[in-house]
Design a protein around this nucleic acid. Sequence first.
DNA 1: GTCTATATCAAGATAGAC
DNA 2: GTCTATCTTGATATAGAC
Lengths: 192, 192
Amino acid sequence: MYRLDGLVLEAYTGAMQGRPSKRESILDAASRVVESQGAAHLTIDAVAAEAAVSKGGVLYHFPSKQALLEGMLERVLAAAEQDIQASGSPYGGVHAHALAFTKPLSRSDESAALAILAASAEDPQLLDSARTFIRDSIDALRGSDHFADALMVLVALEGQRIMDALGLLPLNTKERKLLTATLLQRAEEASR
Amino acid sequence: MYRLDGLVLEAYTGAMQGRPSKRESILDAASRVVESQGAAHLTIDAVAAEAAVSKGGVLYHFPSKQALLEGMLERVLAAAEQDIQASGSPYGGVHAHALAFTKPLSRSDESAALAILAASAEDPQLLDSARTFIRDSIDALRGSDHFADALMVLVALEGQRIMDALGLLPLNTKERKLLTATLLQRAEEASR
DNA sequence: GTCTATATCAAGATAGAC
DNA sequence: GTCTATCTTGATATAGAC
């Protein structure tokens, strides 16, 4: 169970217990819908069809579309938090962040991120927990001797993620590795 | 007149001639709508009201909502191109890019960017000209001795822009200046 | 070129049966 | 908890007058 500014993230508990709840399977379906049809076609109808549940069934677990999107965001953030914790960085800080964020997102997390990005147009508050996540990351950097460089790396990591999700970063494998190596290098320099 | 992969960008011609066409004023109105009401409320109705034109009037100049969004994107890209050209960088390359991109976007350009980001969920092809823009920017970096660093700066610049537009980068004035200075410094190092 | 009126439709949400 | 059926709204786009 991850805590994020008072918001309890239970996103993974279902999967962790090997007992994927219906709630979880609906979130999975939602990601698959975005993956196959694009964020704009993330409708309650489409999710219901994909999850092999009726519309009413979906709305029982997520009383509104916004609730569904919040559920998706929770998961993405919990996964990010998880990845950072499990990064095994000897430095922590941006370096852990960099280790976690230079591994590509799972397709479903990327899809969810796109959906949330799109939905934030309708309700900017939807991004609040993401704001908290990033604010905490930056807070952890303050006071460092290399704050500016760490910040640059952080912004670059997020930039890479968003651009990738949007298909805006045309790099071949070699170039991608080079970018990753550079980010990790800079992160390490800024962390020691 | 800016060329971008065969796409003729006439976004600024109206303003340049000091004869703002109705087309231009509709685009202005669209940005204002996003600014005041959010990207989700960018509807033909709202734009018509803001531009003091009827719905039919808007649809005469932009036969579909997609056409309107394309018009907005053209403008943002033309402005970016313009800013880079006018940056006065002695190095060119990422440094010019950095000089241009570390100056904050105008509110209306930022609004347009948000609208396009949101709309890309409906039609990913909408981002095609942005893809071309970024691809060209990266192409210009290839062959440089400092390709990796230049790329990192580019990604960081885009990251900063997108995060700022989404309200995801909580920095005070001092920190923002520090980040800007670092990006410019790295850009310069990667450019000489 | 600009307007009004209207057709059409997709989608979120509610109510209540089972 | 899950289903079907229905209500309601908001938005794009068309048609045709002026």
